[in-house]
Amino acid sequence: MHGPASAGWLLVALCAAMGAYCLLRMRSSLDAQRAGAGGEAVMGFGMALMAVPAAVLSPPLALWWVYVAVFGAAGAYEVVRARRSAHHLHHLVGALAMVYMALAMASGGGHHGAAGVPLLTGALLVYYAAYVLRSGLRLMPAASAGTVAAGGGAVVAHGWGDRAELAGACRLSMGIAMFAMLLTM
């Protein structure tokens, strides 16, 4: 990733923490929290590895092709799941963005000199800016004091992996990180 090393390390820490939290969500007793948590964990850890500053680690060219294969497979998986919910469509966009960045890195010989297609980079930046704003607005407190499920009953959180607001904050953080990574293209 281009840019100052301190920003790269902050992205590494943020994305690794989000990946770890998503692994914790995979153990949740709530189906809604487990759904998609594995894909989000892979995305978080993949972004963390991609954000390591180039001055510290210049990965071999073959690693970028591994990224293309892993996130290409994740994208193919999300194509099937995107029919079920808009959130899986977001996972598809994220996987394709990772493929795009990995291809740019592979064609640029690694971190240095990697540049993408300006129009595609711009479209992804607009998408992630809108996603971040929408996600941030959804985290704002509602008028009611309690959280109510769609069925009318109160949502009970049993553990850290069951907290819907933490999952929303995790998604928001990963959206911000993806936006920051795309800015360096």
Rank of each mutant, 00 (worst) to 15 (best):
T147I: 09
A130Y: 06
L57G: 09
G38Y: 01
I176E: 09
L124W: 00
V148R: 15
V70H: 05
G44S: 07
M178R: 00
T184Y: 04
S135V: 06
V117R: 11
A169D: 15
V117P: 01
L125H: 10
L89K: 02
A143I: 10
A180K: 09
L23N: 08
P118D: 15
W65D: 00
V132E: 10
A167F: 08
M185W: 01
A17V: 04
P141I: 01
L139N: 09
A13L: 08
V52P: 00
W160E: 15
L96W: 04
E40A: 02
Y67M: 03
A69E: 11
V99W: 15
A177Y: 00
G159R: 05
G175T: 03
G153D: 09
M43Y: 01
C15P: 01
G151P: 00
L63M: 10
V56T: 13
A48T: 06
V52I: 13
M43V: 06
R25V: 10
M185L: 03
M174G: 05
T121S: 07
L119M: 15
V42M: 06
A37M: 06
G94W: 00
A7V: 09
L89G: 07
L139R: 12
L49W: 02
L182A: 04
M43P: 06
A177V: 03
M101W: 07
S58E: 11
G146H: 07
A169M: 15
C15A: 02
V70F: 09
S28K: 02
G46F: 01
A13T: 14
M1Y: 05
A169K: 13
D31S: 14
L124K: 02
A104R: 07
A32M: 10
S144E: 13
L125P: 05
G109L: 11
L92W: 01
P60C: 12
L133T: 14
G110Q: 10
G122M: 13
A177D: 03
Y100F: 14
A20V: 04
P141K: 09
V52S: 05
R27M: 13
H112R: 15
M178N: 03
L182C: 04
P59A: 03
V70W: 08
G113A: 14
M1H: 09
Y21H: 05
A145N: 14
G38V: 05
V80E: 05
S107R: 15
G8L: 03
P53Y: 10
A177G: 02
V68E: 06
G110C: 11
G36F: 00
W9D: 04
G159P: 03
V126N: 07
A69H: 13
A167H: 03
L14V: 12
S85D: 14
A32E: 11
R27Y: 12
M50G: 01
A102S: 10
